[in-house]
């Protein structure tokens, strides 16, 4: 589990992260979304104890990052922004070095390296120098390194960047597989569809502050203080005058559709359907409209969010 309280970091006079308060339960995946320089990497670095917070606190896998940094590092697997592989070493040597650094026993070490090389399709190139690897291969190897010691917490910074679609799919599937009751995962990403696909929670960070957080579905409703609906008719409207019921606000209409919003869909929707049918407009479908995550993200980073949903 990861828990942070008012986690903040200043570099001299510049606050890179301010007041980040998060709680990610074991078994959950949190996607940290934000533009470049928003504070994602600084937050992850504080959680891995390689940056000391200026203010606030955090507990990672049950350990305080300030008082038990060694235990935190032993419990965390990290995929850093730059893969950080040694170009003169082979894939096998690199994994072996880190397996020793994470104090894996000899038998376990060999088995684990074997498993991971197989899983990421790197077994064939295990003895090739990393300097000769493609970007995608390096990323896979870096991910394998993060998983060596079966960490309880995984912090992944841009795990699928520079990967071809098939490799990215492999990594996303791996993240989903890695999710277990005991493991907590934070993924920093720019890829919104990836975040939506793998995360239970999304936190949008901008200028060092968490501006929005919640489940993907909750975020999609974040822009709306009233539910939006679209009614599609069985026949074109042909300029037919429409009259809505009280409580429904007209938003727009097209050749064969109508869009409206209401604060009380449970009472307004049946009345409106009844009214439209009575007006001789046969309804084909009615569906609730939600914003795309991209819209939510852009609104969040541009600071145009409804105050109700803002967390910081």
């Amino acid at each position: 589990m990861i828990e942070t309280e008012d986690l903040s970091k200043a570099f001299k006079d510049f606050w890179a992260v301010t007041g980040v308060t998060l709680r990610v339960e074991a078994g959950q995946v949190l996607a940290l979304l934000g533009p470049n320089g928003a504070g994602k990497t600084t937050t992850v670095r504080m959680l891995t104890t390689i940056l000391r917070p200026t203010r606030g606190s955090a507990r990672v896998a049950g350990y305080d990052i300030l008082t038990h940094p060694d235990e935190v590092r032993a419990a965390v697997g990290v995929l850093t922004e730059g893969h950080g592989l040694y170009p003169f070493m082979s894939a096998e040597e690199d994994l072996d070095f880190f397996a020793r650094a994470y104090r894996l026993l000899p038998g376990e070490r060999k088995k684990r390296i074997e498993e991971l090389l197989e899983f990421f399709g790197l077994a064939e190139v295990r003895r090739r120098q990393i300097g000769q690897f493609s970007k995608g291969m390096r990323q896979k190897l870096a991910l394998a390194r993060a998983l060596l010691h079966k960490p309880r917490v995984l912090l992944l910074d841009e795990p699928t960047s520079a990967m071809d679609p098939a490799s990215a799919r492999l990594v996303r599937d791996a993240i989903r597989e890695l999710r277990s009751k005991e493991r907590t995962i934070i993924v920093c990403t720019h890829n919104l569809s990836e975040a939506e696909e793998i995360a239970d929670q999304i936190a949008i960070i901008n200028h060092g502050r968490i501006v929005l957080k919640g489940s993907p579905l909750e975020l999609k409703f974040a822009l709306q203080d009233q539910a939006r609906f679209r009614i599609r008719f069985a026949a074109p409207l042909n300029g037919h005058p429409l009259s809505l019921v009280e409580g429904a606000k007209w938003l727009g209409q097209g050749k064969d559709w109508l869009e409206y919003q209401t604060a009380q869909p449970e009472t307004v929707n049946p009345l409106l359907i009844q009214s439209l049918t009575r007006q001789g407009l046969p309804i084909l479908t009615i569906e609730e409209q939600v914003c795309s995550l991209e819209e939510v993200y852009l609104h969040a980073v541009e600071g145009k969010l409804n105050n109700v949903y803002q967390t910081a």
Binding site: R45, I50, D70, R73, V78, T80, E81, G82, G84, Y102
Partner: peptide
């Protein structure tokens, strides 16, 4: 950029 993974290990 190879220092960060090294610093993240439990080595003191």
């Amino acid at each position: 950029l190879t220092i960060e993974p090294l610093l993240c290990t439990p080595l003191s």
